[in-house]
């Protein structure tokens, strides 16, 4: 049995090389962040227009058949304190100091809507082992299919916005998340939250148009009057309103590889509870590493062959026949 360590190391080197390539700044099989779909649909939320009426929350519950979420003792009506398996869209309040001035970071307040961002390169879709979460190839809507879901909750670990929620109180639970009302889109309609928003704070549309609209708003001069479309970005229904200042940042344009939901505000987004994310997606980081190790299963097969050769020699004392 003249064996050996040397042979083993030789065979292991194949696997070692692949592993080592991860250490280098440019991995061999880098998977780039996915780019935007041309016909993607999304929502533009403008916190400076939002009055916190929660009409969008009520509409969301109604058109998605979600139950009331009673969160305070003796509560008489739906009063969710955060997103949950019963609430996939919520309007939250940021408040600082006296909390008097609207859309001011100091001594002011701001509303912020939270719901699925419909990421361009979604972590949840990359993570889900059984394709229960998928991104529509045309609209880009991230959809959940309970018939595939095994309830592993890896999507919850993966999502940078903590969007997928699990029915912890059910013996036969599901994941629940905003699906941009894709059942309504399929019938030629659009997201309920936007239909019922009275101020134009939430508007629905093609993401390219929404980006243009967001850029237009950032270029407006505060104090002047401007027109804001209601419900949909291409709507003829508009309201005229005095422009208030914006932070020069369209949240969701690049965050985590970009999202189909875009946000405008005048209070820094991290203060509103939105994470600061790099322009590359978490999915691309994970898949780059993973594909480097497992592309075509070549490395595993090479290692297996090497192992077999060595072990055959070691156990029988012969070379391969």
């Amino acid at each position: 049995m003249g064996l050996n360590r040397r042979d083993f190391l030789k065979a292991a080197a194949g696997g070692g090389l692949a592993l080592a390539s991860n250490l280098s700044p440019a991995p061999v099989l880098a998977r780039a962040t996915v780019t935007r779909l041309p016909d993607a649909l999304g929502i533009l939320y403008d916190a400076t227009l939002c009055i916190g009426c929660k009409a969008c929350m009520a509409a969301c519950k109604k058109f998605n058949n979600l139950p009331p979420d009673l969160c305070t003792p003796n509560s008489l009506w739906d009063d969710p304190v955060d997103l949950s398996a019963k609430t996939v869209n919520i309007v939250k309040l940021y408040k600082n100091g006296t909390g008097l001035a609207k859309d001011q970071e100091i001594n002011g307040y701001s509303f912020v809507r939270r719901f699925c961002m419909h990421c361009v390169d979604p972590s949840c879709v990359s993570a889900c082992p059984v394709s229960a979460l998928t991104k529509d190839p045309k609209t880009g809507v991230v959809h959940y299919n309970k018939d595939n879901c095994i309830g592993c909750r890896y999507c919850q670990v993966a999502c940078p916005y903590l969007i997928p929620k699990f029915q912890w109180d059910q013996a036969f639970p599901q994941i629940v998340k905003c699906q941009l009302c894709d059942h309504r889109i399929a019938q030629g309609s659009y997201s309920a939250c936007c239909e019922f928003c009275p101020t134009g704070a939430s508007i629905f549309g093609n993401v390219q148009d929404l980006r243009k609209e967001a850029r237009r708003r950032l270029s407006l001069k505060p104090g002047t009057f401007a027109e804001y479309p209601l419900q949909r970005v291409d709507s003829h229904h508009k309201v005229s309103r005095q422009v208030t200042p914006y932070l020069n940042h369209v949240y969701g344009e690049t965050e985590g590889g970009g999202a189909q939901v875009l946000m405008l505000a005048n209070v820094p987004f991290n203060k509103l509870g939105l994470p600061q994310l790099p322009p590359t997606s978490q999915a691309s980081h994970a898949e780059t590493l993973y594909h480097t190790l497992y592309k075509g299963m070549i490395v595993p097969y090479v290692v297996l062959g090497g192992l077999f050769y060595i072990i055959y020699k070691n156990t029988t004392g012969h070379e391969l026949p």
Partner: peptide, 17 residues
């Protein structure tokens, strides 16, 4: 896993991601 009865989907090539 919450939906254990779907566990076999992990072994179906057309559902596995």
């Amino acid at each position: 896993i919450g939906r254990y009865w779907n566990g076999y989907k992990l072994f179906l090539p057309w559902t596995v991601n």
